[in-house]
């Protein structure tokens, strides 16, 4: 999923200061799962904004709404009946959702209420870690299902650097050495020979190295 975290309230308040009527939008997908921008977080933020405003002697009208998916135009259409009565939109979706709104409602200021963080998974309840950097050319098949690009602090593709100790990365005790994990996996799978193969310099183009990426499915695209 795409993970996110709410921005500091102060920053959010600065964005919406000039406006009287705000449409605060959550998203039912990833940001709901990582407890950053779902229906509930929309409610909590709306209350927080209202109270901060009240405390500062101002007021604001907030309409709360949560879309099934903010990154799909079909769902964004749902906002048509309410968009006109808002001066600005505050989105709790990831950056994809925010941009979808900005593209659709050209005359409406749109602000992010969360910082989009990374593509990750849940380690345990309330803990999410980065798993994928979307390099566009998945090499997990060669690395025992553990990604050195997303999980090695130096993105090393040919083994651990000299800073790996007791399975821990030199950058912090709470960071696993990705290559230690890969090595353990390769051993468990009896694939240690695979390690000796040199992974050549990566072509970063599929990973965004040549501008914004696009997928066109000929059979689906209209």
């Amino acid at each position: 999923m795409i993970t996110a975290e709410r921005k500091p309230l102060e920053e959010i308040l600065a964005y919406i200061k000039p406006f009287k009527r705000i449409l605060l939008l959550g998203c039912n997908e990833c940001v709901t799962v990582c407890a950053a921008g779902g229906r509930k977080e929309v409610g909590v933020l709306a209350s927080g904004i209202q109270m901060s405003m009240l405390k500062n002697g101002t007021s604001i009208e907030i309409r709360e709404h949560t879309l099934e998916r903010q990154c799909d135009p079909e769902y964004v259409e749902e906002l048509l009946p309410m968009i006109d009565s808002a001066d600005a939109v505050l989105s709790m979706a990831c950056g994809c959702g925010v941009q979808q709104l900005a593209t659709r409602f050209k005359d409406k200021p749109v602000f992010p209420a969360v910082n989009t963080k990374f593509m990750g998974g849940s380690d345990r309840h309330g803990v999410w870690t980065e798993r994928c950097q979307g390099c566009g050319d998945c090499l997990l098949g060669l690395t025992g299902g553990i990604c050195p690009i997303a999980k090695c602090a130096k993105q090393l593709m040919n083994g651990p650097c000299g800073g790996s100790a007791r399975g821990v990365c030199e950058i912090g005790e709470d960071v696993d050495c990705a290559w230690h994990l890969i090595w353990e996996r390769l051993k468990a799978l009896d694939l240690t020979e695979q390690y000796l193969e040199i992974m050549p310099a990566k072509d970063w183009r599929p990973g965004g190295g040549s501008g914004p990426r696009k997928i066109i499915r000929e059979d689906l695209a209209e």
Partner: peptide, 11 residues
């Protein structure tokens, strides 16, 4: 008890 309950109580 949810965050929402707590914050709404204050609001």
């Amino acid at each position: 008890v949810d965050s929402l309950h707590i914050i709404k109580a204050f609001e």
